[in-house]
Simulated assay, not measured.
Amino acid sequence: VLEGVATSFPQTEEIIENGKVSGMTATDVQKILNLKHAWEFILDRDVVASLSNYYMLSHIARLVNEGFFAEGGRIRGVPVTIGGSSYVPPLPNELEVKDRIREIAEENDEAINVAIKLCLYCMTTQIFLDGNKRASVIFANHYLIAHGGGFLVIPEKEVPQFKQLLVKYYEGEDISVIATFLKERCWKTI
């Protein structure tokens, strides 16, 4: 839903179990299967024990973009715009991105706060040509799960407000507004 793939829960379940469902585009089916593969990857016992770093994010982006881009986990080298926003992200510098992700991941803060900062940094930076929101959320979840901090999921009913807050954040609103929303409405613990 976050990326405009409008499927019901039963349709998503059918795609995950059988790889197909009638009345859906191949692109939407591929996006859902890619998300499944990315989640399977981060939940692997060895992977969840690995660092949440640029290389992890790049591999997640590669999985999310599989079938759409030959190198979906490669840092973008062309300008992009963000629909509905005046914010134009600058071209990312690989060394700066690596350093910033490492700095955030090493912060001495609650796991949820670090995960939210990782997620929003990656979304705002628009590191890849496509799939940034999908890869960022899964990357944040890798960090959260690895640190026993639950998981972050944006429920369908919260997507419109999340997108509004994200645009405001892109355009300069303080991180505390969207971070509070994510903690109160999207953070799940067991």
Rank of each mutant, 00 (worst) to 15 (best):
S85R: 04
I116G: 00
C119S: 13
V78F: 08
G73H: 08
N93I: 15
L182W: 04
C122S: 13
E96V: 12
H142I: 11
V48C: 10
C186Y: 08
Y143L: 06
V159L: 05
N34L: 04
I101H: 01
P155C: 11
Q161H: 12
V64A: 00
Y87I: 07
L2R: 10
G19Q: 06
S50R: 14
L118M: 05
D28S: 10
F69T: 07
G19D: 06
A61R: 03
Q11H: 10
N141C: 07
N93E: 15
W187F: 14
L35G: 12
A26V: 12
S52E: 10
E94D: 15
A115H: 04
V97H: 02
F139K: 01
P90L: 08
Q126L: 04
A115I: 07
A115V: 05
I60A: 03
G149A: 04
T7H: 10
S85P: 08
A105L: 08
F68V: 06
A49C: 11
K168L: 12
Y170L: 06
Q126S: 09
D174W: 07
I190E: 14
P155K: 11
L33M: 08
F128I: 05
I145D: 00
A146S: 15
G23P: 08
P92C: 01
M56A: 13
L182A: 02
H142S: 09
V167L: 03
E171T: 04
L35P: 01
A179I: 09
A38Y: 09
P155E: 14
I175T: 05
M56Y: 06
I32R: 02
A61V: 07
I154N: 03
L91C: 06
S86F: 12
L63M: 07
T7A: 13
L57Y: 09
V21Q: 02
K168P: 07
